[in-house]
Design a protein around this nucleic acid. Structure first.
Lengths: 322, 322
DNA sequence: CTGAAAGCGCTTACAG
DNA sequence: CTGAAAGCGCTTACAG
């Protein structure tokens, strides 16, 4: 069996006749042969690795999403014939230092970036360096960049609000963040759309920062306004936790006396039996890896960014019969 | 400047005279040259990568630790001249399938493993395959394996208990898990040791499963036993959260009327202002990477496993003046 | 289908 | 210090 034939069996199986191919494949399976990735990398000038920066700092809220996303990337990598290299440039001079290092040492071919924000220097640096990348989260302030995927927060709130009406709550209020945050405003829009589409008038609403005491205080008054038998859709799990605490403080049973929903399906949402909306991290990871793969093959960028619909996870906090 | 000299400058700088070395280094810095890791891997038969399996499933409790640990590994990798490849063998036939794949494709030289448990097939498989590894967490049931590091839970509870006494709580009770869990028993031992060493008698204690309602119910009676001005050291943040809820249910202010401490410094500990004990993930990641590095160099395994002391993070829940 | 060759970029041993 | 060579394990182009 020539070296050429084995290589063809792996790379261009269509060049071999069926019986030869099968013979080669069975021997490969028997010996457990796998081509050396180092040699393949050297030959192809591709590493087959995608870099993903993990930041040490970060709000609890953010980490609740980034960890599942990291797992999702690692899971989906196999299907894209690549693996994920995580890195963290603690104490770096510039936000792109870690990226420069990875590229120069040719450890990765491309990056998935997260936590994009206004004025983020990474997209521009990566573009200039000619390194493919795709972002988890919109690339704010750069409408020309379309290689991103994000969660459809409006759809999440629509689903949560519709669910609250469907299980029989009389009125649906809203606890959100102060106006002006893009993500917060989008989620609130979902609540408005679902309420309006159901033919109801908007319930009472309030705003609180992403802080438990502030949320609890705001919710204490708000749940009195919706009254027993009403429900509150929230812009985050933390705000929903505030509603839960406010209910307890009034002696109301969450779910039975007042319903509530959060967003992100964080660890404490499960602990508190809060209905929430689970971010479609696996779908997003798969999509983003597909994007960088296409860019590596020289394909064009997508027409536009992609929004993915999260999935409702119902728990006792939105069950009037609790 | 010969290829040989440049290579020597990087690998054996002591072979060059100072002026030559400096000249080479300045040119390297100017061009931003970094040796291709693919070529180095092929040559050395080492990839310079350490694999780390991320599991999709897992309790919220566990994920609160594994994510910071993953970040710590990525941060510490630079110092060990390696990088971290995360993988996840979702839908694998056996728990070692992902490991086999990574080794056969020669993507990594070694592994860091977490979530070791009794009957875990991974250590035996890795030993048989001759692949170096080190574990975050004791390798239960295999006292012969010493390549592990873990958190000293007894020290954590000692520190928490001593702190509660130091800030002036009259009595220190304990809320733990049902007896028989190794980690739980170790943490309880820390509470007993600190209490005894302070010359006090043990305060009241209770047990609850790692479930919020169970913890809240158990804590409701327990805090009445310690009384106002007392405090409860807990085996986990979730149990401490139960104490916090029980205090609120009684109309007591956490910190002022009853103190409480948790373990792990999870996201919700910060949200609820719970004093907790932060796992030394960075120290552990650094130690474990050092271990696998030594094994790769052919060094002997350590004499014994290593326990690292966690760090107390004080917040309002253990402040009588709140 | 086989077989011999070339080259990806390193590191090392060796002769000068 | 230089320079020429070898080899790590692949993939590909090419002659047979």
């Amino acid at each position: 069996m020539s070296r050429q034939t084995v290589s063809n069996a792996l790379v261009h199986p269509e060049r071999l006749k069926a019986p030869t191919l099968e013979k080669v494949q069975s021997v490969i399976a028997e010996l457990g042969y796998r081509p050396s990735s180092a040699a393949q990398s050297l030959r192809s000038q591709r590493t087959g690795a995608v870099g993903f920066e993990l930041l040490a700092i970060g709000s609890a809220n953010r980490n609740e999403i980034i960890y599942p996303f990291t797992v999702a990337l690692s899971e989906m990598a196999i299907g894209h014939n690549c693996h994920v290299v995580t890195f963290s440039a603690a104490g770096a001079q510039s936000p792109t230092e870690g990226y420069e290092d990875m590229i120069r040492a040719q450890v990765v071919d491309a990056f998935i970036i997260a936590d994009t924000h206004k004025g983020d220097p990474r997209p521009a640096w990566l573009d200039k360096a000619g390194v493919p990348y795709a972002a988890f989260g919109r690339v704010w302030g750069r409408p020309d960049i379309t290689s991103w995927a994000d969660v459809d927060g409006a759809a999440g709130l629509r689903d949560a609000t519709n669910h609250l009406f469907a299980v029989g709550y009389a009125q649906g209020g809203y606890l959100g963040w102060p106006f002006g945050s893009s993500i917060g405003d989008e989620r609130r829009r979902g609540w408005i759309e679902a309420t309006t589409a159901s033919g109801r008038s908007l319930g009472p609403e309030a705003q609180a920062e992403q802080d438990l005491d502030a949320a609890t205080d705001a919710a204490y008054d708000l749940i009195e306004q919706v009254g027993r038998g009403g429900a509150i859709a929230c812009a985050s799990d933390l705000l929903a936790m505030g509603v839960e605490r406010a209910a307890r403080r009034r002696g109301w049973v969450p779910g039975r006396d007042v319903g509530m929903t959060g967003i992100d399906d964080s660890s404490y949402a499960g602990m508190l039996k809060l209905t929430s909306v689970s971010q479609p991290v696996t779908t997003i990871a798969d999509y983003l890896l597909g994007l960088v793969h296409k860019r590596l093959e020289g394909g064009p960028p997508p027409e536009s960014g992609a929004l993915f619909r999260p999935a409702l996870v119902t728990r006792a906090s939105s069950d009037p019969n609790t």
